[in-house]
Amino acid sequence: MIETARSPKESQTTITELMIPSYANFGGKIHGGILLSLMDKVAYACATKHSGMYCVTVSVDTVDFLQPVEVGDLVSLMASVNYVGNSSMIIGIKVIAENVKQREVKHTNTSYFTMVAKGEDDRPVKVPPLKLETGEDIRRFAEAIKRKELTSTYQTKMNREKSHFQLEKDLELLKGHRCEIDL
């Protein structure tokens, strides 16, 4: 079977939802968990459109909460496939909130979800390659590669340090920070 590459624009997905009072905390701001749930939903829709398969979330690479979302805002979550591996896809998500009364639009969140396509046997399956058609497509793909490399380097370093734990060294690191040690 010949794999046909698909462009990011073929699977770009936008979900828009009205922020209602039941989504808010006591301060009238929308709970971060509501926004995370919506981001997961749009990431799933985008990944499924690209792969044509059932997809699962395997990781979320930072969620930046840039500005609060208010009750009454129309929130649009825009998702695009930025990178594909064998069975994985990195979905870039941008969230904007619109106060329609005041005609104000603000960028509130950015995040990257890694999704994996699954077959009928619940095992990962190969996804179509990504057809890069614009400079923006190339930039996003390259940034995803760099982000993956940084994450891998970070995880390797943290695992190495965890396996070589030295109490004295860590106690020295804690000096000047807001903690009390009670051994």
Score class of each variant (00 low, 15 high):
L36H: 09
S37Y: 04
D40A: 01
K41R: 02
V42D: 04
A43P: 13
A43N: 05
A45D: 00
C46M: 09
C46S: 11
A47H: 03
T48L: 02
T48P: 02
T48S: 15
K49E: 00
K49T: 06
K49W: 10
K49C: 04
H50Q: 12
S51V: 06
S51P: 06
G52S: 06
G52K: 08
M53L: 05
M53G: 08
Y54R: 11
C55L: 01
C55Y: 02
V56A: 03
T57Q: 04
T57R: 13
T57K: 09
V58T: 10
V58Q: 09
V58K: 12
S59A: 12
S59P: 00
S59D: 05
V60I: 15
D61V: 09
T62L: 07
V63S: 08
D64F: 10
Q67I: 04
P68L: 07
V71W: 07
V71R: 13
G72I: 06
D73Q: 05
V75R: 07
V75N: 07
S76V: 01
S76Y: 06
S76D: 02
L77Q: 03
L77I: 08
L77R: 05
M78L: 00
A79I: 00
A79H: 11
A79S: 06
V81G: 04
Y83K: 13
Y83Q: 07
N86C: 07
I90D: 15
I90R: 14
I90P: 05
I90N: 15
I91W: 10
I91T: 04
I91S: 11
G92S: 15
G92M: 04
G92W: 10
A97I: 14
N99S: 13
N99H: 14
K101A: 09
K101I: 07
Q102N: 14
Q102Y: 04
R103Q: 15
H107G: 02
H107D: 02
H107R: 10
T108A: 12
N109Q: 07
N109H: 14
T110N: 08
S111G: 05
F113S: 02
M115V: 10
M115Y: 14
V116Q: 10
A117T: 11
P124C: 08
P124T: 11
V125F: 01
V125D: 00
V125C: 03
K126E: 14
K126C: 03
V127H: 13
K131R: 12
E133Y: 00
T134F: 00
T134N: 03
G135H: 06
G135Y: 00
G135L: 04
